[in-house]
Design a protein around this nucleic acid. Sequence first.
RNA 1: GCGGGUGUGGUGAAAUUGGUAGACACGCUAGACUUAGGAUCUAGUGCCGCGAGGCGUGGGGGUUCGAGUCCCUCCACCCGCACCA
Length: 939
Amino acid sequence: MEYDFNAIEKKWQAKWNENETYRVTEDPAKKKFYVLDMFPYPSGAGLHVGHPLGYIASDIFARYKRHQGFNVLHPMGYDSFGLPAEQYAIETGQHPAITTKNNIARYRQQLDQIGFCYDWSREVRTSDPSYYKWTQWIFAQLFDSWYNLDTDKAESISTLVAKFEENGSYNVNASIDQEWYKHLSMDEFPLFGEHFAGEFTATDWKSLSEKQQQLILMNYRLTYLADSVVNWCPALGTVLANDEVKDGRSERGGHPVEQKLMRQWMMRITAYAERLLNDLNTIDWTDSIKEIQRNWIGRSEGAKVLFGIDGHDDMIEVFTTRPDTIFGVSFMTLAPEHTLVAQITTSEYKAEVEAYVEKAAARSERDRQSDTKEISGQFTGAYALHPFTGKKIPIWIGDYVLASYGTGAVMAVPCGDQRDWDFARHFRIPIPNIFEGVNVDDEAHTDKTTPICESEFLNGINGKDAIARAIEELEKIGAGEGKINYRLRDAVFSRQRYWGEPFPICYKDGVPYEVETEQVTLPPVDKYLPTEDGEPPLARANQEDWNIWEGDRMEFNTMPGWAGSSWYFLRYMDPQNDAEFCSKEKAAYWGQVDLYMGGAEHATGHLLYSRFWTKFLADHGYIEFNEPFKRMINQGMIQGRSSLVYRVVNTNKFVTFEKKGEYETQTLHVDISIVDNDILDQDAFKQWRAEYANAEFILNDDGKYTCGWEIEKMSKRWYNVQTPDELVEKYGADTLRCYEMFLGPIEQHKPWDTKGISGVHNFLRKFWRLFHDSDNNVQLSDDAATADELKALHKAIKKVSEDLDRFSWNTVVSALMIAVNELGELNCNKRSILEPLTVLLSPYAPHVAEELWERLGRTDSVVDQSWPAFNADHLVEKAFAYPVQINGKVRFKIDLSLDLNPGEVEKEVLAHEKAAQYLEGKEPRKVIVVPGRIVNVVV
RNA sequence: GCGGGUGUGGUGAAAUUGGUAGACACGCUAGACUUAGGAUCUAGUGCCGCGAGGCGUGGGGGUUCGAGUCCCUCCACCCGCACCA
């Protein structure tokens, strides 16, 4: 075999390994470039061809940047805590650490054969105690921090305590639940009276016991314990974050999810909502991902308004974006889950309200969301009091109001909001009009610019002015204030799972404290299931099973999957440091990730949490940047291409695709490994499964069986999974790398199809042949290159460089093919051409490039060669075949010197016989000459 | 409903600022070489038409000497959000 890719690839992978070719260290003399792949979960199923798509693209880019003289950080590791290993542990009893280790070994072997330039000395695993030690440390930093809105950043809790000691709560402007004091158990705080509303003096603070102080501080911390309504998944025995729930079911496993009140660790990501939103403008991500995040954060400006309740002390707080329409309020709607519902409902309506609440609770979130047409609600019998007019406003409950958004209560303005209008119309509630010259009999009027009437001080004004004025007046009477509301919720951070980071937390007298003496590691347990009384698996461990036990008990929850992946890009910079999560100097040198390659599916999870933790660490000065990933490219998914055979109904005969219309057939999937270019290997098919052993075939006119095909998800079920292993075996890693890039634009979803891989393989063989004679002996010339050869080379240098700079990986392969085709035609075997060409190839096909580099007589590695310099002189043309358009349509071409000026070109064109033919003796109306491009004659 | 994206030959696709639509590759057709190889080479291959020629980038309209590219409008598909107050 002339191009023995298997031997070549093994040889160079071993050499790279031996020479530590891809090991990098900080080098202040060089500019850095950080290329990162999204953290993979090492699943037991291994890789299919879709997985390495992004890895190949980033690997090519990393190599390209290295050729350009950058010090390139290109690491890889494993997000190795996670459900599948735990699930396997539950089923088999095998410790998840063992499963994880085995899976990683397989993963690594698969990655290695593709020839990536990862610096494996920097590998990290989130489940490794030396890694999660620092995940726990970051958690502890969050626990020990509060968000100061005055400085707009996170600060150590000690600065808060100092403020409390100096002036009580009065000068504290923290990001905190405005009603935090309602969650304090007043039995614990006899000092605070009945009317305690969260404010206390320095003297109060100093008189509080340690426990009391801790209970208060808990409400300020960036990670805090709170009773919150969580997405509880009984089948998984755990809570899920909002983004882990899809359509009311768990993203993993598709199990039903219900709402449940539980005491959970929370992450105060909402403190960062504004910064997470604004800083999207500083990063180079696709619009679609930025848009998804903006949507998820869901900022809206408006006002908080307080409504009194007739006969009660409580107030109903609502959030509205249209405080200017406050005089149009004709009813209030509370979410059925609203805490005040039970209190305010009158005895007369008690039964109906309870029935409605029960009905709403029984409906799954999904039902409530999908059913938007049917209007339902129930009057409570209670009345709110309008803050300005004092008028009584009926209070309803309705499930179109979501407990989780805003305050769970709406001031309904039917004339200005379509949902309120629909509700009012349905229940025959009056629809007072407050818009000048507008009819609201048939629908609500949502235009903000219409002047307002019937509204006291708001009469005659509109839009922003009216909103500002309304807020001003609300503040004057103490019934509200301007407010910005976010859809973003604080993230639940507890999981009732075994295979995750244990919290560095113990409890004393019910109060959580950080364990600081030693790292808490996962204790062994007898089973990986919850305890009988529903405690998480860690509760199974006895005191002596824990490496450390403080206080009354340890925390039994573990951290969620996204904990370890929220900061892993930092650990790569300094993976072995056991004194810090990452040294400040190294973080400063490597800085932001310059190119992040990964899927778009993490838009609201990982990509938001990483940004949050980065900002937090920057607030404390551990790192110098606010955003983790400067530029991100989202690779598209590779779909499977299934092969189909057609069985004639009730027979064992299979009819070829071309003739299936002549029979009544049943379509069956067939393993793609026994199909080549849609032609079925009939013998292999008979052996594939016992039931097909006696299969007969109705063939096409060429005596072949053609399969049909369909694009669907790559899955074992459809027998359409293509592993990289088979292709590496058959064509080599270099071919696989080039082919995956050649498939099309990186961001696009595309079906996998091995049709065409032979073309890419041929290209590498042609490349090889430029260096060798027909007996596969190296034959190279030291003669000077011709102008044509230099032109072919420099055309490629230009195109390859430009395309890589704009992340157009697919067109680079074409450019290299063109160069090889042209040089092949010229029978070029000149060193001066092939050396730079080999460097151009090396990011895509590093193994064969190294081999050829060696055959060129070089003893150094091709990966360290500087990128060939482009010289435009070699592309200068003397003549050009001008396409000549007559009225915008190309009619003929004319060879002209490029030295001619437009006037001369025009003259030559008009003198051409073809031009005369189209002009039919008439004078052209206009002639446009674009030098070196085109000529257009307007007749 | 709102937001984002995509739509080009039989197939994957290319065309970077408006300037030769379909580069490159697969597949296909014909031929050469060959005692069979998933080999190589040559020529052809957007569609219609014998041809001259006509038509062609999801549909319709517009701007322009010139539109895949810009504008308007409609359609289809994919992704995200969705009673957001």
